[in-house]
Nucleic acid binder design. Sequence first.
DNA 1: CGTTGTATTGACACTGGTCAAGCATGGTGG
DNA 2: CCACCATGCTTGACCAGTGTCAATACAACG
Lengths: 186, 186
Amino acid sequence: MSYVLLDDGSRQILRFYFPGDILASSTLAYRKSPESIVALTDSSVSPFDRSACARIAIDHPRIMALFAVLNQIAHVTLTDRLAALGRTSAKARIAALLLEIRNGMRQGDRAIQLSFPLVLTQEEIGDATGLTAVHVNRMLRQLEEEGKITRQGGTITLVDEDRLCRAANYIDRREGLDLSWLPPGR
Amino acid sequence: MSYVLLDDGSRQILRFYFPGDILASSTLAYRKSPESIVALTDSSVSPFDRSACARIAIDHPRIMALFAVLNQIAHVTLTDRLAALGRTSAKARIAALLLEIRNGMRQGDRAIQLSFPLVLTQEEIGDATGLTAVHVNRMLRQLEEEGKITRQGGTITLVDEDRLCRAANYIDRREGLDLSWLPPGR
DNA sequence: CGTTGTATTGACACTGGTCAAGCATGGTGG
DNA sequence: CCACCATGCTTGACCAGTGTCAATACAACG
């Protein structure tokens, strides 16, 4: 995940990364990364040099364009999160986070449907949603009491995905993707 | 400005655009723009077709790379805003918004230093900061009482910029820019 | 002049934060 | 094997920051 620390010591988690994602794209613009990145599970990372980007831009314009598309997708995900923080309740934000993580893990593992491991502590969930760990706990319990999810030792099961989506104001954007303008190439 | 509407009718303003900014980059990835854009002042816009992007990627790799850099800058601005919404008080968010708008207007008009016109209604400020118009009013008055700003009919003057920056947790990122990796070209 | 949108202010309600305590759980060292 | 400890989870009581509702004041505008 990536996050920023404020000078009062509080932390805002910005996004979670999943297999195949490109990390630290912001170092394209800044010498010193404005955000920190930490692994929550065992991970393998393939680093490459910034100068490689220049060569890719010249030799593989289609890849550079695809890179721009990926950034736009990440950007829209971030705006959805901004709207969640600014305009929805604590319960909705947590529901949205659960759905976001589930869908993120699905990319790597098609088997994941309704049950998935949640490797986050409640404090981390709070730092991602702008809440305190205590309140995260209360909201998770409520979601469970309302029959939307169940929890058993780090594993979340979506009992009623539809109602959870509605509680979260969740928008699935995968439909609207459109890459038809991309230049040809490999 | 660009914004999204939630199905309960509430609005989250995502960002403000200033002269020279590129609008609606998210249409690179989506057929239907996930966000709405509206002009707050008289504006001129130069539209271009998405297929032009493909040609630019091929013929002008440096411009495509610069486009990626601009997107990263916008992305970091958005993450700063996310941290503000998630982890700072109402007063800090409004202070940060005032500074953001001031600095945005400066780009186009170097004369703007401490005084600038604020074309936003208090409701719009609230929709940008995740607050209600009423509370925005209270916080603006407090900032004024504390001697950080003055207001006279749509014009804001930063009386004590230092203290305002500190109240806002404001981070000026312009220092850290680094474009040295860009491919050569015009 | 009415009308409409915006700003201002007060009283009150409620969401979410704070503080504090008690429980699990798993790891560690004796 | 067991006492010990650290970390995270759970719950309750209370509090503060922000939202809600309502009334008034202003200004622009037809």
